[in-house]
Design a binder for these strands. Structure first.
Length: 883
DNA sequence: GCGGACTGCTTACCT
DNA sequence: ACAGGTAAGCAGTCCGCG
């Protein structure tokens, strides 16, 4: 029997899937896993099914096509295994119509639809009109009948269908109000929630912290505390990586064709087992490196043996980790197995167009998760800037991939083993470092977003927030609105963006006061936009609400008004999450009096909230977001502009000199503690916003440019924002010269020290200049490294320099794909650029590099009263004499 | 036929 | 497929010019 089909995901359907014999909840055997050795040979898993299951955690919810039922994947921590539970409540897919049953019954094609089960009247609360509405629930036998078929789906047969776009397995979670990531039991075949209650001291602290909030708001806080405090089980898992023979070394093997042999695979698990499977081949060179002692090297004469061992792991481990397994490893294995004569039901993988899922456990593709911008920026503070396993592992773990001089096909067995092993070793480590930070982050995100782990790790933050909001709609029996209806009733934006092509006005950037300023205090609003959403009751249903009496409750700078009668959903959700982070988790994460493990946990929650909160405003202004509401997004930024403007006015009235500010921050020149306190109190009282000291600089340097400055902390470390010398694409020689200058500026303690610094900086520039002129820098340090964001052929409007270089590379036989970093140098001949790989030192355009040197240093030096022209004048003169 | 003024494209950054 | 605002460098176009 099959485990599930993936129609629900909108996948290309595999007609059948591997034979994981799983009894239904009606089964009466004891729960235990039976591995039959003879079955293993076919990679077939047999599980006798639990009628009872001790406390287990829901990792995932899917739809099982053959059983026509939702299926839960539960992780039981003692046996460290996954158990399935199928819905036994008779839950069916449905959508909603505003037509009555009578009206719908006149619709012949609906009435005769083979997938139609029955019709049912329901009352829903419509948040847009703020009224109860009568609707009809159209209940179907299977999800595809509602929607998803190219034609003839129920949702296409009626004039307007609500909630028909929601994936069935998500819908099931909402209707059952399932807490994914939380503990449940199976008792007599039924799913039973295990109640968790946080320790009393935490409950009391929360009560105290939020005693002034409404009961409604406190309700949200309570439910979050449960989710965040409930212990997270450590989940048994394995990292998988395969190597494929390459006939042409620059060509990546095609996973759809899977023509070449799988020559190696490694499986590194969380219990310390590390295996490498190596295919014996002809003509493999002898020798090579030593593979670490603890790694189990297994030579296989037949490629099928390798696949069999991998498939065994795929039906054994609750979580399988890969790096790009969706697009490569699992896809390749699937088609390779087919090519080798495996039947579909013998392969424990289900392929979709974009995903590769497992029939037993949960496949987490770490590439997808790390690629998520929110994770990159907010959870890892931009620690990694490229998305290769090597880059990510090197910057997070300090260990990268094994570097190869040859292609994998040319390696000796042990070299190949070492290479392959390292990949899965670091893949696993990405989930174990920092006390399993990443797994915990995923689990907490699963809990907050109420989303299955497979979906969560593959979707963007807008998907998470949508799911969270939908879940809440269902809890309150709110009709989930159609995006088009929000847009129609909430109309157009009222502000104009400064940038062409943008939809509405954004934040204010204060004109910096050029020069250096000693003793700078930087104040900012704690989570400005989420605070605004909370304090101003912003939500798609409260902005421009239908009540005449609310029209006077307007937003500064805009004609929009906000509801007075009712609290907005997103205001409550985002507001409560914001408060949890600011008032509790952020502080606890820093509390040195707590044991490290606890602090760690608080940090995970804090980071999770950061990710969600930072995106909460952005999604409201993103067309692809299902609850997209432009007037709401522009209201947030308008109130933001109002807040910072009023705060600057107040600061000025307190005689504080504001030298710079951006969106939610203000830079104050030598304020007294008293002045700061006054300002903070004023903000709390007049704006209802928490203004706090973010950082303090011994001195800061501003040019006339916005978003460009340098701040020196009291300990001499330097904060650099926006300056060219720090930008990723700048050549290495320039970045290191720039950093030398920065270090010199870090030593400046008082205005008088600039004279001394000037002498040192002059020397730095001189050295750099002479080395350039004498071509003493290695070619690679002269290379600009720029990302190519789309394939070279898609640049139709202009051909930027890095694309020219990419074209030259393509001609030379390299494959260039979107996201690649193109390294190129400036040359005097040809098109003015050449890819690093094809250039030589004597065609370098030295003058161009001198220009870069000048402009980069100028950004900082002009502001501290050091003239770059003067330095360059002297430098050029000197170098003239030296020649 | 050429150079300056201008606009637009692209990337990288800030909040 | 979270937003808008800013900067640098370059590509491409237009216009004037005996």
């Amino acid at each position: 029997m099959t485990v599930k089909t993936l129609d629900e995901f909108g996948f290309r359907t595999q007609s059948s899937s591997p034979k994981a014999a799983i009894a239904s909840s009606q089964s009466h055997q004891e729960y235990r896993v039976v591995k039959k050795e003879e079955k293993w040979e076919k990679s077939v898993l047999e599980v006798e099914f639990p009628k009872n299951l001790p406390e287990s955690c829901i990792l995932s919810v899917t739809y099982e096509g053959e059983k026509r039922a939702a299926c839960l994947k539960l992780y039981e921590p003692k046996s460290k295994r996954i158990y399935f539970w199928y819905d036994n409540t008779g839950h069916l897919p449905y959508c909603l119509s505003n037509l009555s049953i009578n009206e719908l019954e006149k619709n012949i094609s609906l009435k005769n639809h083979p997938g139609l089960d029955h019709l049912e009247p329901v009352k829903k609360f419509d948040p847009i009109s703020d009224k109860e509405v009568n609707m009809t629930k159209i209940i179907a036998k299977d999800p595809l009948s509602i929607g998803g078929r190219p034609s003839g789906s129920i949702r296409d047969l009626i004039p307007k269908a609500w909630e028909a776009h929601i994936r069935y397995h998500h819908n099931y979670i909402y209707d059952r109000q399932l807490f994914v990531g939380m503990p449940y039991k199976i008792v007599n075949g039924n799913l039973v929630s295990v109640n968790y209650s946080p320790p009393q001291d935490i409950r009391l602290t929360m009560e105290k912290l939020f005693e002034n909030e409404s009961e409604e708001f406190r309700g949200y806080i309570d439910s979050w505390v449960n989710l965040f405090q409930c212990p997270i089980p450590s989940i048994r898992r394995v990292a998988l990586d395969i190597e494929v023979y390459q006939s042409v070394s620059t060509r990546i093997p095609d996973p759809e064709e899977a023509k070449e042999q799988v020559i190696a695979a490694s499986l590194v698990d969380s219990d310390g087992l590390e295996r490498v499977l190596i295919l014996r081949r002809k003509d493999v060179r002898e020798g090579g490196t030593k593979v670490p002692f603890h790694v189990k090297l297994e030579y296989c004469d037949d490629e099928r043996q390798i696949l069999r061992e991998i498939f065994k792991a795929l039906i054994e481990y609750p979580i399988v980790l890969t790096f790009n397994g969706d697009d490569f490893d699992l896809r390749y294995l699937y088609h390779r197995a087919e090519n080798l004569g495996y039947k579909k039901e013998e392969i424990p993988i289900s392929l979709g167009n974009e995903f590769a899922l497992l029939n037993y456990g949960v496949h987490v593709d770490l590439y997808k998760f790390f690629f998520n911008r929110s994770i990159q920026v907010y959870a890892f503070s931009q620690k990694y800037t490229e998305f290769s396993l090597n880059e990510i592992a090197a910057s997070i773990l300090g260990v990268g991939k094994v570097t190869l001089d040859l292609s994998v096909s040319e390696l000796t067995y042990t070299q190949l083993a070492e290479y392959c092993h390292r990949d899965s070793e670091i893949t696993l480590k990405l989930t174990t470092f920092g006390d399993e930070l990443l797994m915990k982050l995923i689990m907490v995100l699963v809990r907050v977003s109420r989303m299955p782990m497979e979906d969560l790790t593959r979707q963007g933050v807008s998907g998470w927030i949508r799911n969270l909001m939908y879940f809440e709609h269902r809890r309150l029996n709110y009709l989930i609105p159609l995006s088009e209806d929000i847009l129609e009733t909430k109309g157009q934006v009222a502000s104009t963006a400064i940038i062409k092509g943008k939809k509405f006005k954004g934040a204010i950037v204060v004109e910096p006061k050029p020069g250096f300023h000693f003793n700078i205090a930087v104040l900012d609003f704690a989570s400005l936009y989420p605070s605004i959403i909370k304090v101003y009751n912003l939500s798609y249903e409260t902005i421009l609400c239908p009540h005449p009496e609310c029209r006077s409750n307007t937003i500064p700078d805009l004609p929009h008004w906000v509801c007075r009668r009712k609290k907005g959903l997103s205001s409550l959700l985002i507001g409560s999450l914001r408060d949890m982070r600011v008032r509790w988790y952020k502080q606890k994460a820093k509390d040195k009096s707590l044991p490290e493990s606890l602090r760690n946990l608080y940090n995970v929650v804090q980071l999770t909230l950061k990710v969600l909160l930072n995106a909460s405003y952005g999604v409201m202004g993103a067309e692809a977001f299902e609850l997209y509401c432009p007037p709401l997004a522009e209201a947030v930024t308008a109130i933001g502009r109002y807040s910072i403007t009023k705060t600057i006015e107040k600061a000025n009235s307190l005689n504080i000199n504001v030298v710079y500010g951006d969106t939610d921050s203000i830079f104050l020149d030598s304020p007294t503690q008293r002045q700061i306190d006054d300002l903070v109190q004023w903000s709390e009282k007049e704006l209802g916003m928490e203004l706090e000291i973010d950082k303090f600089y011994r001195y800061a340097v501003f040019s006339k440019l916005k978003k460009n400055y340098l701040g020196v902390y009291p300990d001499g470390s330097v904060d650099i924002k926006g300056l060219s010398g720090k930008k990723r694409h700048m050549p290495e020689f320039l970045k290191s010269a720039f950093m030398e200058m920065v270090k010199t500026l870090g030593e400046v303690k008082s205005p008088n020290d600039f004279d001394q610094a000037k002498v040192k900086i002059q020397a730095i520039v001189r050295t750099c200049y002479t080395k350039l002129k004498n071509k003493e820098y290695p070619l690679s340090s002269l290379a600009l490294n720029m990302m190519i964001s789309k394939p070279p052929s898609r640049y139709t409007k202009t051909t930027p320099q890095h694309v020219k270089a990419a074209e030259l590379l393509t001609k030379a036989g390299h494959e260039i794909k979107a996201g690649d970093i193109i390294s190129f140098v400036k040359t005097t001949n040809g098109q003015g650029v050449k890819p690093l790989q094809l250039a030589s030192i004597n065609e370098i355009d030295v003058d161009k590099y001198v220009e870069y040197l000048e402009s980069t240093f100028e950004q900082v030096l002009d502001a501290v009263g050091i003239s770059m022209d003067e330095i360059m004048g002297i430098t050029k003169l000197e170098s003239f004499f030296f020649h």
